[in-house]
Design a protein around this nucleic acid. Structure first.
Lengths: 155, 155
DNA sequence: GATATTGTCTCGCTCAGCGAGATGATATCC
DNA sequence: GGATATCATCTCGCTGAGCGAGACAATATC
């Protein structure tokens, strides 16, 4: 399981990035009286906001791998902290639409701005082909992992 | 917050990779009667095994961001599942050395083998310069994030 | 209009992780 | 060489995130 080539080293590196990222996220969460899950939820909400997609409670829970009870509790927490507002969907009154508060957007920037800055600065030193290579790798890996290639789904 | 260039897109992509990775890890954990933290612990232990570094209870807890009580509980869990054995360090009898069981090594491969395979396959289609670019990016980003550049440490 | 389905919420519970502090082992100082 | 400070781990009691089961609305289906 030692040095088997540059590919393995890269996977290892990627794993360490995700792990380190998770730790920082947890730290950040704690610093703001939240839990890691809450930050992940915020990210989902901000992504949806960016895409213009409306997020319902159910969709959020699915995205985070929570059941409905846990999702309700999560939303309660975020609402209590003022990061979120619930709105009944008027088209389908079973649904609850979630709208992020401006303070949550700001919090998101505080959480990820520095990392974004680092990456952007880093990539400034890359030529177009190199940037493309990075994107191609991440994109391909995401696709592979997403369709069950990771975490022992038996692929 | 829309399309601001290829760099931002890459950060976004990386975030999605880490998020997806985390989800799969949680799934895998649940499928094996464990918790996400347990899998993360296993990874630490396997890394240490690979490097030949002995891991103590304290170091594991620090790596995972747990306090001593939580660390003890975690080790109890893993020991109960047979993934781990405690050994008193004879040089410093305060310490507890952790040794992973063979079944845990196998479990680690089951968890990450497919992802590793995907990445390796993907990288086979890259030339040396492209692979180097990917590594340079991940390495640089890891360094930036590790020294507090991420998650709003104020950097 | 009766029935099945969907989306969210409520209730009760389990257990991961925390804070505080006990305990045993090791450095430090006189 | 014993008193003292520090370190590594563990124990105890507790909080609260997340689960399973099921209630309850609103919407589809017949």
């Amino acid at each position: 399981m030692g040095e088997q080539g540059p590919e393995l080293e890269i996977v290892h590196l990627l794993r360490r990035v995700t792990s380190e990222f998770g730790l920082r996220q947890a730290e950040f969460a704690a610093r703001h009286g939240m839990h890691p899950t809450d930050v992940r939820a915020l990210v989902c909400l901000l992504d949806a906001e960016r895409d213009g997609t409306g997020v319902t409670a159910g969709r959020l829970g699915a995205e985070l791998g929570l059941n409905s009870a846990g999702t309700t509790a999560l939303i309660d927490r975020l609402e209590r902290l003022g990061h979120l507002t619930r709105t009944r969907d008027e088209r389908d009154r079973r649904r609850v639409l979630l709208r992020v508060a401006p303070q949550a957007v700001e919090l998101g920037w505080e959480a990820f701005g520095p990392a974004i800055g680092s990456a952007v600065a880093l990539l400034r030193g890359f030529d177009a082909g190199e940037v493309a290579a990075v994107r191609r790798f991440l994109d391909g890996f995401l696709a592979a992992v997403s369709q069950g290639g990771a975490a022992g789904t038996g692929a």
